[in-house]
Write a protein that binds this DNA or RNA. Structure first.
Lengths: 233, 233
DNA sequence: AGATGGAAAAATGTCAACATTTACGATTTT
DNA sequence: AAAATCGTAAATGTTGACATTTTTCCATCT
């Protein structure tokens, strides 16, 4: 239940911080379902803590857009309907295309080398798998490197502490897609190329297209799923 | 001190919510100085509440990027140095240019009329003042209308609940600029025109230029201020 | 039988006290 | 006199209990 009570000398730096991570992951994986109410008393029992730290963790989740709060009525897990998903990708497109433009200007060569290592590893993983897919974790690692490479705290915070949690939640649950496509890897190579050329405009355009592609694929899936349920009913 | 304890029947919907606003405003206006430590015990006495709701309010301010937390050492108010200010405007450029592109596609004619009313009021205010400036509040109102007009929850949250608080804090303190320029009003008219034409590309480009202009002016001011202090020392 | 009312239970909002850690200052030692 | 160490005080982290509101369930009335 409690993930870190092993070494009493280490002092796991704060309970509410641990709770934030645990709750966040439980929401992302769907262990706590979309739209469901978060009962403070039940969660306090489940994690074996008092309600104080728990409430603080919930307040942080509010800032991550993972739960919404209504006074005197508690908090509910966000519901990822089609509209919201597409809105998330619009926000991501705006922020991450700007991030890569900045990264192309300020990223160190050491960081660019790291990007190469990631892509090489992804190429290898693709061959070892079915030859058409790359693990989602690897995909996240790539994007996180680029985002941090922008050295823009505000953009990095917005993307990694808010938008990406929602994207992971969507991919993990609604989609069962734990992989990204071959096209994705090709586009990643193009992005690294643009960064290497120190060409912010090319980098921005390439990243924007990469994300719009992903958005389009998702939109098609959602529309098909919507039609399907209409037929079913 | 306490802004709403008058009517006991009305029940001011939650103490920690009120605290969030009060603390936020105290930070934005500089009443609580940049870089200073927020003492929970002192603030609890000052607002005459217990530390529970206060801590929750502080957790919310964390999500707004207004304070940063270090375990076992409390929270400090963010410091708006030159780097951070420019990063904020880069993030704003990315998000708000996308917001206006979306707004151009989905805004209702009633909302567009509201934009016109605001601009007309600003024109009037400018004439009644020195003839060259418009109150900052009016400027915020315009941008907020456009942002909400995008109907994108994620972008709206990022801009209005995070980035704009930092911008207001900067304008209120570092800059003593409680006004925006004449150019600004002209650019606002161009933005409304693009929205009216239902031209998302033109709207996006115009908004981007509007924000880049503001960023450039700030950058010049900051560099002059920096040179000035070098001379002084 | 359905709807309306009230009472009980559970949930959120809040507070005061306890525990542990950090920081500051005084004292001691070199 | 300067530096290091120890002790005290204050701050953060956490807990359990109290208050008010909301929800649910049951009984009663139409």
């Amino acid at each position: 239940m409690n993930s870190s009570l092993s070494n009493p000398t280490v002092r796991a730096s704060s309970l509410n911080s641990e709770l934030t991570s645990s709750l966040r992951d439980a929401i992302i994986t769907g262990e706590i379902k979309q739209g469901s109410r978060l009962s403070e008393t039940k969660l306090a029992k489940r994690f074996d803590v008092s309600r104080g730290p728990l409430r603080e963790a919930i307040r942080r989740l509010e800032g991550m857009n993972l739960v919404s709060h209504r006074p005197q009525q508690g908090v509910r897990v966000v519901t990822l309907d089609a509209d919201l998903i597409l809105q998330i990708y619009d926000a991501r497109e705006a922020l991450e295309s700007k991030a890569v433009a900045l990264a192309a200007q300020v990223m160190s060569s050491a960081e660019i080398d790291e990007l190469h290592r990631l892509i090489d590893a992804q190429t290898k993983q693709m061959r070892e798998n079915d030859g058409a897919h790359v693990p989602a974790e690897s995909d996240y690692a790539f994007h996180e490197l680029v985002i941090r490479g922008s050295q823009n705290k505000v953009i990095t915070h917005a993307l990694l502490e808010e938008i990406y949690h929602l994207i992971k939640m969507f991919r993990y649950q609604t989609l069962a897609a734990k992989h990204s496509s071959t096209n994705s890897l090709i586009e990643h190579r193009q992005i690294v190329y643009a960064i290497e050329q120190r060409d912010p405009v090319l980098a921005e355009v390439t990243m924007r297209r990469h994300i719009v592609h992903a958005r389009d694929r998702i939109k098609q899936r959602l529309e098909r799923a919507s039609n399907q349920t209409e037929i079913d009913s």
